[in-house]
Design a protein around this nucleic acid. Structure first.
Lengths: 175, 175
DNA sequence: GGAGGGTGTCTAAAAATTAGACAATCAGCC
DNA sequence: GGCTGATTGTCTAATTTTTAGACACCCTCC
């Protein structure tokens, strides 16, 4: 229990934030909440956040969640490895889809089911990509580059910013 | 024109494949089509494919696209860098959402609009992540690792499979 | 047949990585 | 307060990797 780290919840409705706090406090070591999206990046800079729960339906009458999308993009830009789960209105599937295409990990429609919400958050965190060794990451990237150059090693090496011989070395060394 | 490489289209309906061929031939250098999902990986192994267009609604009466999801996952697993765009039935948004969460780049609902289809395919290819230099990729991964270890450099170095001093070196060298 | 581009291999110099050590600092704990 | 363990920043010398440059060879295109 309580092994899921820190969660940051953003919603402009204080009642929802309180409800979320009660729900999440048993699962997360720390629950941060804010009604001010402007605080997101500041909070995330101050301390390590493990997952973000972002309400997409800001301010009554505001332009259909596009503001939420902007915040999502801002989060993704500065912290590409922190998963973001979206809260959207039940009807607004298209917004959720836009969110997913912008890098959100999952979404939950309001009104939500507590059990399902917790389950999805845990799922996302369990799926978190482990950090692999630098060598392994290097090889993955090298394979990508070679693939991208359709097998042309000279071009791949140039693209990677290393010499062709170094590319040979690395391919030989790391299988 | 014709600078968008090779596209692979999978659909169990031959009529759709022919229609697609006519539509895509002006934009792509090569248009491969198949009704056999089993051929996907074989085709992709034989030649470099730049984008895949995958119909999710297989065989009349088959279990709601879950087969399509399996193929999507298989493609993503073997070729994580080749974008996959899905074709789904108009009503089946939930399937499209599942597809996006499984790594699809975008989806198009049937019946489709030719202009929109081409536009989306081009968009996906234009957004294709460029191959960055090995050093840059290295630094991104190092930052990820340090973040993951909440700033503990010793642990990050161990996780990356390098010595602490090397971590210092790389951080100093590459800003 | 020649030109251009790609491959595989080699050398010697330059640079990075390694293991190992050291004192200084910070944390929690008795 | 004082102890202990972990972490940091810095250093050295040996080892390994990377680099630039060169060479012969194999393609393909014209």
């Amino acid at each position: 229990m309580k092994s899921y780290g820190t969660i940051l919840v953003i919603d402009d409705n204080v009642a929802i934030l309180t409800a979320m706090s009660y729900l999440l406090v048993d699962t997360f070591e720390q629950v941060l909440t804010t009604t001010q999206p402007d605080d997101i990046l500041k909070l995330m800079a101050q301390q390590p956040i493990d997952i973000v729960l972002l309400d997409m339906n800001f301010a009554p009458g505001v332009n259909s969640g596009s503001e939420g999308l902007l915040w999502l993009r801002a989060i993704r830009k500065h912290h590409p490895d922190v998963p973001v789960v979206l809260l959207t209105a039940y009807a607004d599937v298209s917004l959720a889809v836009k969110g997913l295409k912008n890098g959100a990990s999952d979404f939950i429609t309001k009104p939500w089911d507590n059990g399902e919400l917790l389950h999805k958050l845990k799922d996302v965190l369990d799926m978190q990509s482990e950090i692999v060794s630098l060598d392994e990451m290097e090889m993955q990237h090298i394979r990508r580059a070679i693939d991208h150059c359709h097998g042309n090693l000279s071009r791949a090496a140039e693209m990677l910013g290393i010499t062709r011989q170094t590319l040979y070395n690395k391919m030989k060394r790391l299988d």
